[in-house]
Design a protein around this nucleic acid. Structure first.
Lengths: 203, 203
DNA sequence: ATTTGACTAATTAATTTAAAAAGTCAGAAA
DNA sequence: TTTCTGACTTTTTAAATTAATTAGTCAAAT
């Protein structure tokens, strides 16, 4: 890893700390520079602007998010349990990075930025693919009945995203994430996934 | 019906028209009065304040909403079809009264108003009850397997609300409701309900 | 090649001012 | 007596102005 890359890594790390604690909007470039005992101008030597920095951090978090989910599904031999584990990972990430408001609407990120959009779209694509793949595996093993795997995968994702957003929305009075909120999301998601899986089982 | 009641009805009707077209915030008491060729002060003879008027309108809409859903379920002999019809009714109301933003977050209504809260809570209670009742009927008929009906009813509602809010959220760039958005909600809801029902079927 | 202090430009926040809407009331009309 | 209204006050909301902060630049230094 080159020296430039190392420095970039340090900056990303420092930015991530601030972003995940205070949110993107409440983090200034000067603060990140100060944390690294360097100057703001120096940051601009490594990143063209704040948006690029934010995008790098978001990309790092989100690809971890997606990869962990993929791994959990790939290593699961129990269809229902695999999807429940998926819920746990999703909630864990949501709790950890809540302040960044990546997923929900009140985002600090400019969600219409084409670079951000294409990042999100790519990850959604990948997510749809590995959930489809997961279902396909269990269709082939005979546990799940024959169906349109992609459509079904999309339905599962829709449900999880839906419960997620609805729950955050309803308990929105509290600006900060509380464990109770995320526990609620976990419980509801797992409950729905359970029924859902029964509906996919070969009868 | 007394003369006072009649006048109140007229006011509610006029208010509903404006509210559902322009939203609550963009409707003034003077405009409602003008529509009825009367004076603003006159409105205040029949309603103590704007909030009371809004609450009356909301109550009228929402109880219709709930009652139509209840009727559809009560008259359904096909478990899955009944729930799909429920989706259709929900989407229809959403489309009709979208501008009032009753359900979603960006509400023109002060959602923390205790009177509004108790109205909502009461209706949610009722909704949970008749969905539970619906499931119970099909458990007893043997079509649905034995399960905690209330928990299951809540899961169905969570899913429908979730898809609803998530979809509005994602396509939020368009300030106004478009048919495509609500078609999307309908399709996704029905798709999920279908799988869900299979999961509840006695095997 | 990398860093920096001192700079400008663009955003955001705070303050003030003006406009609009909510809400009141004494007295008129039915 | 019940219902209605114009003229009024109070409260909210919107627009305009100003001040402060932050993003982003650059010539000079390391």
């Amino acid at each position: 890893m080159s020296l430039v890359d190392q420095k970039q890594e340090q900056i990303l790390e420092a930015a991530l700390k601030r972003f995940s604690h205070f949110g993107i909007a409440k983090t200034t470039m000067t603060e990140i520079a100060d944390d690294l005992s360097t100057s703001k101008a120096s940051l601009y030597y490594y990143f063209p602007d704040k948006t690029a920095l934010v995008l790098c951090v978001a990309e790092s978090i989100l690809s971890d998010f997606i990869n962990e989910q993929q791994q959990v599904l790939e290593n699961s031999e129990d269809f229902k349990q695999g999807l429940k584990d998926l819920c746990v990972i999703r909630v864990g990430f949501g709790y950890k990075y809540f302040m960044m408001h990546i997923g929900d609407g009140q985002s600090d990120i400019n969600t219409s930025d084409p670079k951000f959009r294409s990042l999100i779209d790519g990850l959604k694509q990948k997510e749809l693919e590995f959930v489809s793949q997961y279902i396909k595996r269990f269709v082939e093993s005979g546990w799940v009945k024959k169906l349109d795997v992609q459509e079904t995968a999309q339905a599962i994702i829709d449900v999880l995203v839906g419960i997620w957003i609805a729950e955050i929305h309803v308990h929105n009075k509290s600006l900060f994430p509380c464990e109770r909120l995320f526990d609620g999301i976990k419980v509801k998601s797992e409950r729905v996934i359970s029924i859902f899986c029964d509906g996919l089982k070969r009868s």
